[in-house]
Simulated assay, not measured.
Amino acid sequence: MSSPVEDPSSQCADATARLLVAAAFTAIRDRYLVARHQIAAAIIDADRRVHLGLHVDAIVGRAAVCAEAGALSAARLATSAPLVAVAAVRYPKPTETCGARIVPPCGLCRELLLDHAPELRAVIHDGARAGLTPLAGLLPHKYVGTKWAAAPLRA
């Protein structure tokens, strides 16, 4: 029998990061399915409501949906309040011994999240502790298209 997977929220330096990581961990722990759901994300809005998203894998990789995109969609369905922070947690495969871990948003999610929440911060693990970092600083050369007016990004 395998030992329980530890919640990585204890690695977080502040209360908001801990809250988000714990919420994402609980979501993926409860919904993990090999080759289907590996990551969950949590976004908190300015009213302190947490919105969850689940990674949905697909046989055709391009059709997969990242957990952060799901959380963004859930947040926008529930509120128009500004979005404050995001965290994602990857659950280990049964063959892995690394445990659950905090993961940064992929490049595509960084672009998507910044399109909808230019001031968003992400929980990033620096090797020792995890804390909130401005997402714009992780994507210093964001694509700016012509679909809508771009909001200024601050690092």
Score class of each variant (00 low, 15 high):
residue 8 P to R: 02
residue 95 T to R: 14
residue 97 T to W: 14
residue 45 D to W: 01
residue 118 P to R: 05
residue 88 A to K: 11
residue 45 D to I: 02
residue 122 A to R: 10
residue 143 Y to T: 11
residue 75 A to D: 02
residue 152 P to D: 12
residue 15 A to G: 10
residue 53 G to W: 00
residue 139 L to W: 14
residue 120 L to F: 05
residue 2 S to R: 11
residue 17 A to W: 05
residue 4 P to W: 00
residue 133 T to N: 07
residue 17 A to E: 09
residue 66 C to V: 07
residue 63 A to E: 10
residue 119 E to H: 12
residue 141 H to M: 10
residue 27 A to P: 01
residue 43 I to R: 01
residue 84 V to H: 11
residue 6 E to A: 06
residue 39 I to W: 06
residue 95 T to L: 14
residue 11 Q to Y: 06
residue 59 I to E: 12
residue 24 A to T: 02
residue 20 L to D: 01
residue 152 P to H: 04
residue 16 T to W: 03
residue 130 A to Y: 07
residue 77 L to D: 08
residue 44 I to A: 13
residue 143 Y to D: 09
residue 128 A to H: 09
residue 7 D to F: 02
residue 7 D to T: 04
residue 135 L to F: 04
residue 4 P to A: 02
residue 110 R to Y: 08
residue 65 V to L: 10
residue 29 R to F: 04
residue 141 H to I: 05
residue 63 A to W: 13
residue 48 R to E: 15
residue 42 A to P: 06
residue 72 L to Y: 00
residue 147 K to I: 15
residue 13 A to K: 15
residue 17 A to C: 09
residue 117 A to I: 08
residue 128 A to N: 14
residue 27 A to R: 09
residue 120 L to P: 08
residue 54 L to C: 12
residue 73 S to V: 01
residue 5 V to F: 11
residue 126 D to P: 12
residue 8 P to A: 04
residue 17 A to M: 09
residue 135 L to P: 13
residue 97 T to A: 15
residue 133 T to L: 08
residue 129 R to S: 08
residue 74 A to G: 10
residue 136 A to G: 14
residue 46 A to R: 15
residue 142 K to I: 09
residue 148 W to H: 10
residue 79 T to Q: 02
residue 85 A to S: 14
residue 126 D to H: 05
residue 45 D to K: 00
residue 31 R to G: 05
residue 25 F to H: 07
residue 64 A to T: 06
residue 137 G to E: 15
residue 134 P to D: 11
residue 141 H to E: 08
residue 19 L to I: 07
residue 86 V to P: 08
residue 63 A to V: 14
residue 65 V to T: 10
residue 75 A to W: 02
residue 65 V to Q: 11
residue 131 G to N: 05
residue 132 L to T: 11
residue 126 D to S: 03
residue 71 A to M: 03
residue 67 A to C: 11
residue 30 D to R: 00
residue 44 I to N: 01
residue 8 P to E: 08
residue 3 S to V: 06
residue 113 L to R: 13
residue 90 R to H: 12
residue 92 P to W: 01
residue 102 I to K: 03
residue 36 R to M: 06
residue 101 R to A: 06
residue 127 G to P: 10
residue 55 H to E: 15
residue 110 R to C: 04
residue 4 P to N: 03
residue 94 P to Y: 12
residue 60 V to H: 10
residue 89 V to T: 04
residue 79 T to I: 01
residue 104 P to H: 08
residue 18 R to V: 02
residue 22 A to M: 06
residue 101 R to T: 07
residue 88 A to N: 09
residue 112 L to R: 15
residue 127 G to T: 02
residue 141 H to W: 12
residue 89 V to M: 07
residue 21 V to Y: 02
residue 6 E to W: 07
residue 21 V to S: 03
residue 122 A to E: 12
residue 150 A to F: 09
residue 29 R to V: 02
residue 22 A to K: 06
residue 145 G to C: 06
residue 94 P to R: 09
residue 87 A to L: 03
residue 48 R to D: 13
residue 3 S to I: 03
residue 119 E to Q: 14
residue 93 K to V: 07
residue 66 C to L: 03
residue 10 S to H: 10
residue 82 P to R: 15
residue 122 A to I: 00
residue 123 V to C: 08
residue 11 Q to M: 07
residue 124 I to N: 02
residue 2 S to Q: 07
residue 123 V to S: 05
residue 144 V to K: 05
residue 64 A to E: 05
residue 19 L to D: 10
residue 77 L to Y: 00
residue 61 G to Q: 13
residue 27 A to I: 01
residue 71 A to L: 04
residue 115 D to H: 14
residue 155 A to D: 13
residue 58 A to F: 09
residue 106 C to S: 00
